[in-house]
């Protein structure tokens, strides 16, 4: 690869990293605003116009609080926990195609950090690592509620990973590729996977709620029975890192769902638009940039959905969670694989 290409790639990676952090920061603001809207309140409105500076104020407060480590905690692992959570959360956006190809000076720039031919597996691998931050932090706190939260997180994560993987298999059977870019390209126009895989999408959606520890599956931190769950002993920015990692996970989960099921950067009539502009380079760039906007619109819709559910549904009980994962979602996912296989045989 030429050095100019590498430079573009480096810039792109930094931009994606920045956008990820920015979206996670402002998710905290919008979460509170949406909660306020749903509960008929005003929400944060003091810092800046309409409370827009609230996330900065929160971050400043968290940074300046006392950095406390419990006396009997395992110090190294206590510090490592939030770090791992944050690291793993920011890893998966590397393979997501946020847009098609841009042409600048006759150079083709793909709007994706790395295009590996095992993108789906990479995402799945990173998701399966996500629980370590919670487990390490929960155990290192030397607090029984933290430990219970960590153990809940572990078993919940493992249980829902299976159903998630099985629902992914149906998509892979249809597209015949593990590369996220190819999966995105096959959904050109309005030919989105969700029309063929409604059941698979539903399973994937439920599982991503469980994998990101969001209500109604936020059992690892259910305050009613576990005080704060795995982050009971945490304070200041270490707690902030855990919460921040959760919002990054939501962003990534939304991006993955948009890519796999909702056509990524594709939008209806994109080919008509491409033909309507005479200059091919300009047409390509316009369509690509619009595609990026569409991709982020889809991601924001999913993030909104995560928040909407959080302020609408009550939390599950733990045995209900396990029953849903093992006895309903996994059989449904297997049924979905069979249906997909039958459909492929019948239609081909």
């Amino acid at each position: 690869m030429e050095s100019v290409d590498l430079l573009y790639k480096a810039i792109y990676i930094l931009v994606i990293f920045g956008i990820t952090l920015l979206i996670a920061t402002y998710s905290t603001y919008f979460e509170r605003k949406i909660a306020a809207f749903i509960q008929d309140r005003v929400g944060p409105n003091r810092a800046g116009p309409a409370g827009m500076l609230q996330p900065l104020a929160d971050a400043g407060k968290l940074f300046f609080k006392e950095d406390f480590i419990p006396a009997k905690a395992n110090k190294a692992l206590f510090i490592l926990g939030p770090g791992v959570a944050m690291l793993v959360a920011t890893m998966s956006s590397a393979v997501i195609p946020f847009g098609d190809m841009l042409m600048i000076d006759g150079r083709e720039i793909y709007l994706q950090a790395i295009n590996v031919n095992i993108g789906v597996l990479y995402i799945f691998g990173v998701v399966s690592l996500g629980v370590y931050g919670l487990m390490i932090g929960g155990w290192a706190s030397n607090n029984k509620y933290s430990l219970l939260g960590a153990i809940r997180a572990a078993s919940q994560n493992i249980s829902y990973e299976i159903a998630m993987g099985l629902s992914l298999i149906a998509v892979l059977m249809m597209t015949g590729s593990l590369s996220l870019r190819e999966i995105a390209e096959q959904q050109a126009g309005f030919n989105w996977n969700v029309w063929y895989q409604p059941l698979g999408f539903l399973i994937f959606l439920v599982c991503s709620f469980a994998e990101t520890n969001r209500t109604p599956f936020d059992l690892p931190e259910s305050e009613a029975e576990l005080i704060g769950g795995y982050h009971t002993e945490y304070g200041s920015m270490k707690l902030g890192m855990y919460l921040f990692a959760e919002y990054i996970n939501i962003f990534v989960a939304s991006a993955v769902m948009s890519t796999l099921y909702f056509g990524a950067y594709n939008f209806p009539f994109m080919e008509n638009l491409r033909e309507a502009i005479s200059d091919p380079v300009l047409a390509n760039n316009v369509v690509t940039l619009l595609g990026v906007v569409v991709m982020f619109a889809k991601i924001f819709l999913f993030i909104f959905f995560f928040m909407w559910v959080r302020w609408t549904l009550p939390r599950f009980r733990y045995d209900q969670l396990m029953k849903l994962g093992w006895k309903i979602l996994i059989p449904l996912a297997i049924l979905n694989i069979l249906l997909t296989g039958g459909g492929i045989i019948l239609l081909s």
């Binding site: 998701v127 399966s128 487990m135 155990w139 572990a154 078993s155 493992i158 990973e161």
Partner: peptide, 11 residues
């Protein structure tokens, strides 16, 4: 290994 088996080990 890292994602499934070791989580159970740690558990």
């Amino acid at each position: 290994y890292a994602g499934a088996i070791m989580v159970l080990f740690l558990f």
